[in-house]
Amino acid sequence: MQTTLRVRRYNPEDPEPKPFFEDYQLELDSSDSVLDGLIKVRETLDDSLTLRCSCRGAICGSCGMRINGHAALACKTKVVSIAASGETIEVEPMNNMPVIKDLVTDMAPFWEKIRQIQPWMRPAEPAPIAEYLAPPESMNHLAGVMSCIMCGVCVSDCTVLEVDNKFVGPAALAKAYRFVADPRDSTTTTRLEALNEPNGMWDCTRCMECIQVCPKGVGPMDRIMALRAKGLEEKVPSTCGSRHAEVFTDIIKHKGILDEPMLAIRTFGLKHVGRLLGMAPMVMQSVFKGKVPLSGPLHRPIASIQHIQRLFRRVRTKS
């Protein structure tokens, strides 16, 4: 099939370096991946094209890049799955990390964040002579998160990192969950307390970009949600994030539907009254426009709230 690869190029050694797009037209087989196409470009059309790749089999995690606006492994993305014959495929370096040259990004900030969560076992007992033993049933649930190949694809498409590079990010948080949920690690609470800090587990927007793009089914955001549940269970010091989840759940338990003003008031509490007052401009504008939701005793529970409350009790008891 005839395909055009539109590649974002960047060479820091140019006299005036700036990114630009370059089109390469080539003939590809229906079985070719985007990586096959790029390698063909480099071998037959332009040997200056720079990219990073190794295994070509979605194992090494080297060829992460953005393809038609979303991050993916180029070796795992079949050309026919994203473009009809004659269509253009846009290829760019991963987002949220510095570009070294063309499609090669600097992974140093990525690794720094992985190191930040201390990705090694911290058992209470001295190291055994042979391996650490754990029953399979206590480890099976970690098989998915252990599939992570550190490709950086989830980090590339993270919506929080787009606006704040201090956020620890989905890959590091998924890796953190791998140790928090490992029965052999003895520092669960310490880990959760560290993750509870600003730029940690509560800063994720739950946008699911990382779940959608992860090439290995790790589901980083699901792991972040599991970390939050563990934090709530372990009662690590409350944050606006944890109180938001606790208060939200409590309101649903008592009313069946959300009482928005009460959620804000109880989430911020006296401790963060300044942040509550920070919502005042929006609240006053809303009052002026006649769109203030009812709250407190005026906000009536749904009919059949007793059913909801019984379900809350039953789930708690049976779980």
Partner: peptide, 8 residues
Amino acid sequence: LQEKDEKL
């Protein structure tokens, strides 16, 4: 609510 308890 699912952050606290997905099954619920």
